[in-house]
Nucleic acid binder design. Structure first.
Length: 910
RNA sequence: GGGCGGUUAGCUCAGUUGGUUAGAGCGCCACGUUGACAUCGUGGAGGCCACAAGUUCGAGUCUUGUACCGCCCACCA
C-alpha cells in the first residue's frame, strides 16, 4: 500500500519546481486516493442504512465499449466528478458508480467491419465464435475506457465498476423481462417496424432518426382492371414498394375519386388485381388524392389494411433486396428478385415510363428515417418482434416530472419529455443481432408452450418435455441500460445493502440526445421495479463542438482525445477549461486544431495556482502556523479583513453556483427547480477569487509583512495559509490534482489526510471595516492609470498628494503607504500639492489624489474623464430617484427626473 | 407541419426579480523582467446588446412583430 503522502515527500516541500509537472503528480495522487480508499462508499454510513451521512449517488452514463472516450465524455464525466467531489467534501456518503455499456448493434458493427477486412463475416464465424470475438474486443476497449476515466481524475468507486453485460446485470435484465412478461407487458407483435438493411436488425422508433432528404414523388397510373383505358393515379416516393400494394385508397368524401371505390385496378409489374377502397386516412390534398396501400412496408398502410382485412405481402428481404416474402405469391417478378431496393426503384421507374404509366415526377423534400448506428436508410418491414407495452410504465414517469419530484435541466427539455411520454408508443426490444442479452423465452418443441424463464429451463414448464428452443433474437441494448440506476446496486436482490443505502440516486448527467432512448426509460423502470424515481435531477449537458459548430466525430476528423489534452496540459487544465465554458445547456466550443489555444484558460490558471503555491510555501516557510481560529479580529490587518471577506463572498458564490444538492422534502419547489448546476459560475467565482483577489492583491499586500519577524508576520502567515487552504478546497472539485498536491504541502497539513476528504468551506459573516482596503486598491488603480496615460516610466518615482478630510479612507491610504509605494511606485503624502501642472483622480470615497507632473497636462483628457464621471453620477442619481418615486410614491416622478439620457449627454457636453 | 432555444466585444460566452458608466476568458495594441508567476504583470483599444414597434421615469433584461441560425417532435404517401 502506498503512503498517501508519498508524493508530497518526493519533492522538497518548500522548494517547488518552477514548472508544475502534471503527469507525475496526477499519477501519484490517483494511486494515493485509490490506496486510501478515498472514493469507496460504505452502505452502512448512509442514513438510509441507519448511518450518519446523507447518501449522494451518481451512476455514470455507461460509455459504449465501441471506442475509447472523446472529449464529450471528458465534459460529461467532469461534471459528475465535480458534483461527487463536492458532496463528498460536504460530508455526504458520496458514491459514483462507474461502468460501461456493451452497446449491442454498435459494437457488433465494429467487429463486423473488422471481419470484413479479414475477408470473413459473422455467418462465416458462427454465432458462438462471433460472440466470443466481440467479447474480446469489448473487454479491451472497456479496460481502456476505465483507465481513461481515472486519468481525467474521476473519483468513482472502482470497486463497484459495472457492465451492462456482466452476469449480475444480465440477471437483472432477465428478471425484469420475466416480470414484464408475466404482467402481460411484453408481447410478441406482428408489425411494421424499422429495419436496417445493413445491420440486418429491427430498430426502435427512437433508433430510426429522421433526416431531411431530397427525393422524388412519382405519380403512377394504375389502370382499371375492367377498362385499361382508364386508371387511377397514385403518388409515391418509393415506387419499388408497389410490388407489395394490396389496394388503392381514396377518401370516402372525395367527390371525383370516391366513386371509384369498389372497382379494381391492375397493379403494373406485379401483374395482380387489387381493389380500390375508401378510407378516411387518405389526405385529399396530398399528391393525387389516391394512396397506394403497401401494408408490409408502411406502418400506416398496415393499419389501413388491417381495417379492411387485406393481405400483407412482404416483397423485400431483411437486406432490402426485392424478394418473395410471406404472402408475396409471385408478385415479385423473377427479374427483380435479389435486386437492391434502389436499383429496383430505377428499373421500375424505367419500365413504367416505357409502359406509359409514369404520369409525373416531381422533386420532393421529405424526412427519411436512418439507422442511428450506421446511417443507412431504414426500411419499414413487417415482421415478428417483441414489444414492451409501455403506456402503463409511462404514467408514473410522467407524473414525477410534472409534480417536481424529478427536475430536468435545462428546463426547456421538460416539454419535450412530457410530449414524448404522453404520445409514447410501444417499444420494440428485439434485435436480430448476436451481441447482447438473448430474449429469455423458450418454446416447447412438443406442446408449443412459450414462456419467459429466469433460469435457463431444462424442460417445458407445461408438459415437461425436454425439447425447448430459445428465441434467437437479442434484446435492445437499452433494455439493459434502462435498469442501470438499480441493477448496478444489486437489484433484483432485495436484500442488497447497496440498494437500500444508495437507491434512489441523485443526479443523472448526460447528453440531451439520449433523453428518450435512455433517461425516460430509466425513469419508467425505476418506478416499475423500485417504485421510486431513480434520481431527482436530470442535468443535460451541452455538446462539445468545433469552431464551425460541428459535432465532434471520427469521420469528420475533428475529434479531441481527452488524453492528448491531459498529457500536454494536465487533467486539471482540461477540466477547468471545460467547466468554465459550461453554461447551462450551452454547447462548448473548442478548436481541435489548436489545443494550445483551446485549453489555455485551464493551463494558465493551473500555472497561476502553482505559482501562488510556490510563493506561499517559500515565504511562509516551514515553521508552525498559528491556528486561524485563534486570531482575534483586533490583530487583523486591513488587508486580512478584506481578503477574508472576499473569501466569504467567493464561498457563497460557489454555493449558489452549485445549488441545493437535493430537493427538500423530496419535491423541487419552483424556486429550487432551476437553481444551481452552474459550473461556469463555479469555475469563475473560484478563479476570480484566487487570481484577481488573492494573487493580485492579498499576496502583494502580504509580501512586506512576511519579511519582518514579529506578531504581524505570524498573523499574515496564518491568514495566508488559511485563505489558500480554503481556496484549494473550493477548487478541488474542478481541479483535484493540483489542489491536492499543493494542499498537502501547506504547513498546516496533517499527515495522512486528503484534500479529497477535507471539509467543504462555509461562508462566514463579513467583517466590518474592510472598505479601507478597497480605497487603497482604488488609489493604486488610479495612480497606475495616470502613469499609463502620461507614459511615465515605472522607473520614474511619483509624488502623490492626498487631499481629504480625515477619515477611514485617508487613514487607510496613509497606513498602506508602503504598499501603494510598491504597487504604484509613488510616495504618498497628505495635504495639497504646490501649484502647477498636475493630474487629478477622485476616489469614490471623495478622496482626491493630486499628481504633480513635469510635463503638460492633457486638458481634453482630464475634462473627458470628469465628464464621464459626472454623467455616471447623474445616471446613478436618476435611477435612485426613480426607484424612490416608484416605491414610495404613487404619483409620477418629479419632472426634472425624467430628462432623457440624450438630453443629459448634451447638457454635460456643453 | 407543430414546438422550443439562440442572436451581447474579433472569437467563445456571462449578465439572477427592469435601476450605477454592459462583464469574463481567449485574441489584439502599448509598456514592463521590481525574487511566486512572460503559461506573467500594468494600462488600453474594441459593443446602436440582430432589426422594428410598444410598455416604463428608466429596457440587454418585459410585450408584439420581422430576419437569420440551431435543436426537438411528427404516419402527407
Amino acid at each position: 500500500m502506498t503512503d498517501p503522502t508519498s508524493e508530497a515527500k518526493v519533492n522538497d516541500t518548500y522548494n517547488l519546481p518552477a514548472q508544475y509537472d502534471a503527469g507525475a503528480t496526477e499519477r501519484a495522487l490517483d494511486d494515493a486516493w485509490e490506496a486510501a480508499g478515498a472514493f469507496r462508499a460504505e452502505a452502512a454510513r448512509s442514513t438510509r442504512a441507519g448511518g450518519p451521512r446523507d447518501p449522494f449517488v451518481i451512476v455514470i452514463p455507461p460509455p459504449n465499449v465501441t471506442a475509447v472516450l472523446h472529449v464529450g465524455h471528458g465534459l460529461n464525466n467532469t461534471v459528475q466528478d465535480v458534483l461527487v467531489r463536492w458532496r463528498r467534501m460536504a460530508g455526504d456518503e458520496a458514491l459514483w458508480v462507474p461502468g460501461t455499456d456493451h452497446a449491442g448493434i454498435a459494437t457488433q458493427n465494429i467487429v463486423e467491419k473488422q471481419l470484413a477486412l479479414e475477408g470473413t463475416t459473422r455467418d462465416g464465424l458462427g454465432r458462438d465464435a462471433f460472440v466470443e470475438r466481440v467479447r474480446m474486443f469489448a473487454e479491451q476497449t472497456r479496460g481502456q475506457i476505465l483507465r481513461q476515466l481515472r486519468q481525467i481524475g474521476a473519483s468513482a468507486d472502482w470497486s463497484r465498476t459495472a457492465y451492462t453485460f456482466s452476469p449480475e446485470l444480465s440477471r437483472a435484465v432477465r428478471e425484469v423481462f420475466v416480470r414484464l412478461y408475466d404482467d402481460g407487458l411484453i408481447y410478441r407483435g406482428h408489425r411494421v417496424i424499422h429495419s436496417c438493411p445493413r445491420c440486418l436488425t429491427s430498430l426502435s422508433d427512437e433508433e430510426a432518426e429522421f433526416e431531411d432528404q431530397n427525393g422524388t414523388l412519382y405519380h403512377i397510373r394504375y389502370p382499371l382492371a375492367d377498362d385499361p383505358s382508364r386508371g387511377i393515379v397514385v403518388a409515391t416516393t418509393r415506387p419499388e414498394t408497389m410490388l407489395g400494394d394490396v389496394a388503392v385508397a381514396v377518401h370516402p368524401d372525395d367527390g371525383r375519386l370516391a366513386e371509384m371505390a369498389g372497382r379494381r385496378v391492375r397493379l403494373p409489374i406485379a401483374a395482380v388485381e387489387i381493389p380500390i377502397i375508401a378510407d378516411a386516412y387518405v389526405d385529399r390534398e396530398f399528391g393525387t388524392g389516391a394512396l397506394k396501400i403497401t401494408p408490409a412496408h408502411d406502418a400506416n398502410d398496415f393499419e389501413v389494411a388491417r381495417r379492411h382485412g387485406l393481405p400483407m405481402p412482404v416483397v423485400m428481404a431483411p437486406d432490402a433486396t426485392m424478394a418473395e416474402g410471406a404472402d408475396a405469391g409471385g408478385r415479385v417478378p423473377e427479374a427483380f428478385r435479389g435486386v437492391d431496393r434502389f436499383d429496383a426503384r430505377r428499373q421500375i421507374v424505367t419500365q413504367l415510363k416505357a409502359d406509359g404509366l409514369l404520369v409525373k415526377e416531381e422533386p420532393h423534400r421529405h424526412a427519411v428515417r436512418h439507422c442511428y448506428r450506421c446511417g443507412t436508410v431504414v426500411e419499414p418491414r413487417l415482421s415478428d418482434q417483441w414489444f414492451v407495452k409501455i403506456a402503463p410504465l409511462a404514467k408514473p414517469a410522467l407524473e414525477a416530472v410534472r409534480d417536481g419530484r424529478i427536475r430536468i435541466l435545462p428546463e426547456r427539455h421538460v416539454a419535450a419529455y412530457l410530449n414524448w411520454m404522453e404520445n409514447i408508443r410501444d417499444w420494440n426490444i428485439s434485435r436480430q443481432i448476436w451481441w447482447g442479452h438473448r430474449v429469455p423465452v423458450w418454446r416447447c418443441a412438443s406442446c408449443g408452450f412459450e414462456k419467459a424463464y429466469r433460469e435457463d429451463p431444462s424442460a417445458c414448464g407445461k408438459c415437461g418435455v425436454e425439447e425447448l428452443v430459445q428465441e434467437t433474437d437479442v434484446l435492445d441494448t437499452w433494455f439493459s441500460s434502462w435498469l442501470w440506476p438499480f441493477s448496478t446496486l444489486g437489484w433484483p436482490d432485495g436484500e442488497s445493502a447497496d440498494l437500500r443505502a444508495f437507491y434512489p440516486t441523485d443526479v443523472l448527467v448526460t447528453a440531451p440526445e439520449i433523453l428518450f432512448l435512455w433517461v425516460s426509460r430509466m425513469i419508467m423502470s425505476g418506478f416499475y421495479c423500485m417504485g421510486k424515481a431513480p434520481f431527482h435531477t436530470v442535468y443535460l449537458t451541452g455538446t462539445v463542438r468545433d469552431t464551425q459548430h460541428r459535432k465532434m466525430s471520427k469521420s469528420l476528423g475533428n475529434g479531441i482525445d481527452p488524453l492528448d489534452v491531459v498529457e500536454r496540459f494536465g487533467a486539471d487544465a482540461l477540466r477547468f477549461t471545460l467547466m468554465q465554458g459550461m453554461g447551462l445547456g450551452v454547447d462548448v466550443i473548442v478548436d481541435p486544431h489548436d489545443l494550445e489555444k483551446s485549453f489555455a484558460p485551464g493551463r494558465n490558471f493551473a500555472t497561476k495556482l502553482w505559482n501562488i503555491g510556490r510563493f506561499l510555501l517559500t515565504s511562509v516557510g516551514a515553521e508552525p502556523v498559528r491556528a486561524f481560529a485563534d486570531l482575534s479580529p483586533a490583530e487583523l490587518a486591513r488587508s486580512d479583513g478584506w481578503i477574508l471577506n472576499r473569501l466569504s463572498v467567493a464561498v457563497s458564490e460557489c454555493e449558489t453556483a452549485l445549488g441545493p444538492p437535493r430537493p427538500t422534502g423530496g419535491v423541487w419547489t419552483p424556486e429550487q427547480r432551476n437553481a444551481g448546476m452552474r459550473f461556469d459560475a463555479l469555475a469563475e467565482a473560484a478563479r476570480r477569487f484566487v487570481w484577481n483577489e488573492l494573487a493580485d492583491w492579498y499576496v502583494e499586500a502580504t509580501k512586506a509583512r512576511l519579511q519582518r519577524a514579529g506578531p504581524d508576520r505570524e498573523v499574515a502567515r496564518a491568514v495566508l495559509v488559511h485563505v489558500f487552504d480554503q481556496a484549494l478546497r473550493l477548487l478541488h472539485p474542478i481541479m483535484p490534482f493540483i489542489t491536492e498536491a499543493l494542499w498537502q504541502r501547506l504547513p498546516t497539513y496533517v499527515s495522512g489526510t486528503l484534500l479529497a476528504l477535507a471539509r467543504w468551506p462555509r461562508a462566514s459573516e463579513l467583517l466590518p471595516g474592510a472598505a479601507g482596503f478597497d480605497a487603497v486598491r482604488e488609489a493604486i488603480g488610479a495612480i497606475r492609470q495616470i502613469r499609463s496615460d502620461y507614459a511615465i516610466p515605472p522607473s520614474q518615482p511619483l509624488a502623490v498628494h492626498v487631499v481629504a478630510r480625515p477619515g477611514d479612507s485617508l487613514d487607510a491610504l496613509l497606513g498602506e503607504r508602503a504598499l501603494v509605494a510598491r504597487m504604484a511606485r509613488c510616495e504618498l503624502s497628505a495635504g495639497p500639492a504646490a501649484p502647477g501642472a498636475a493630474a487629478h483622480a477622485v476616489l469614490s470615497s471623495g478622496v482626491e489624489l493630486v499628481l504633480p507632473l513635469a510635463g503638460a497636462i492633457d486638458l481634453e483628457k482630464e475634462c473627458k474623464k470628469l465628464r464621464d464621471d459626472l454623467v455616471g453620477l447623474d445616471r446613478q442619481l436618476n435611477a435612485l430617484r426613480g426607484r424612490l418615486a416608484n416605491e414610495k410614491f404613487t404619483g409620477k416622478a418629479p419632472p426634472e427626473v425624467v430628462a432623457t439620457e440624450r438630453e443629459k449627454e448634451q447638457e454635460w457636453s456643453s
